[in-house]
Amino acid sequence: MDERQETPDVAIGHLKKHIDILGPDVYAVQLSQNGELMSSSTNPEDDQTMSVYYPPLQDVQRPKHVNTVLRSELLELNRFGPNVDLVSYLPRGDATEQTKVAFKYYILSECLHKFWHEMNVWMRLPAHPNIVPFDRLVLDELRGRVVGFTSLYIPGGTLDQHKSRMFKLEWLQQLISVVDDLNFKYGIAHQDIATRNLLIDPKTDALMLFDFNYCGQIGGIGYGEDRNDVQGVIFTLYDIITGDTHFQDVRYSERNPADVQELEEWVQHPDVKLDHPVSEYRAVLNDWVYKRQAERQISHYKEESEYIEWPEFPQPPPEDWPCRDIKGNIVRIGQRVFLARQRRGERERGKAVVEWERPAQTKLKDRDRLLANGQFAPDN
């Protein structure tokens, strides 16, 4: 746009108006003052996309039971949100049943380390009846590097999406149990216990926890006491029963569990269904919170018998980097590690880069079968 905008939100708002009519090969757009599309560019010189670093498979140190799949073998079914898609495997041999999985990946270097922690924790957790199973590591089709992972898709939606579904007392007990196992067996804190990260498996009628995006080792990497899981369970149950979600907008450092625990009454929302009185849910919760506070504290993940560790993110090899003086003259050649480089420059250097552009879903036809790498699957 000709004039600088006050916030990035303005630009994003304008872009949303046009994004579905722009092809995957459009690198830049020119908008009028009121956000109307004036022109678009497919000139590679206008490509500002960054190409991020993906680690080689051997550097991941994956457990023996974890398998892999190529990104080009994943068939897109839906797009859940930023960097998360619903996909299935391309059929092999005589297979007729479609296995649906959630495909999570990263395309920004800012998300790299958080993604690394989530992937490593999830794939190292033993099978648990109340944790959505990790599925596979996803490799790019160029050099076989790790670009993401899949987890088993559990249909039915989250508790946040289906507030009218009856919430059973046994599901609270299962949530308490899985939190204790994560904390006291594996030394892991989930740190994002919320209705948006809880499912009910229609096959087992069991509550399932997923999304380890904020996880950390208690007392170690990624851990923050403000996001402890006990507090997460307290506010999640209050949210489920009362429908009062305003605590979701309160910073974790400013949340005080006493604000809800000390309330004389939790008023059940008229649309909420429970299989026991509210008092029984609160009694189970309060007994557990008391035991967690009085009986045992954990200060470091290595105190636990089955604690989980994983390697640090494997840095790419350093590259030569010209150091210049104030006049722009090269004074020496240094070494620098790049976690992201401009894609245009990588192409000019003859390096293969992982592409993420895909057609808008609104442009897909019923016969189109789009792969996760943006290519169309062959008809056969």
Rank of each mutant, 00 (worst) to 15 (best):
Q261T: 10
H190V: 00
K327D: 11
V146M: 12
S109L: 05
N183I: 08
E6N: 02
P322H: 05
G328Y: 05
V66Q: 14
V284A: 15
E303S: 06
P277Y: 02
C111I: 01
K168F: 13
A377V: 13
S88Y: 04
G81W: 08
G157D: 03
S51G: 10
I218L: 05
P8N: 11
V250D: 07
D249A: 08
L207W: 10
D320V: 08
Y153R: 01
N197C: 02
T204P: 08
S253V: 08
L86V: 04
Q173T: 09
R71H: 09
M166Y: 07
E118K: 03
T7H: 14
G220N: 01
L285S: 04
E76T: 12
R165L: 09
H246S: 10
L57H: 13
K363N: 15
M208F: 04
V146D: 06
A258I: 05
D287G: 07
V26F: 00
I330T: 15
N256L: 10
P311W: 04
A95F: 08
I234S: 03
D20S: 01
Y301K: 01
N329F: 13
Q342H: 03
Q248M: 13
D20T: 00
R367G: 07
D59T: 14
Y307T: 01
K365Q: 15
V284N: 03
R358F: 04
R332D: 03
P322V: 11
K104M: 07
T195N: 06
F376H: 06
P311N: 06
E303Q: 15
R145A: 02
I131V: 14
E225D: 05
H128V: 01
K163P: 00
D379R: 02
V138N: 04
E45N: 01
R349H: 13
P359G: 00
Y27G: 04
Q335C: 00
T204G: 07
T195F: 01
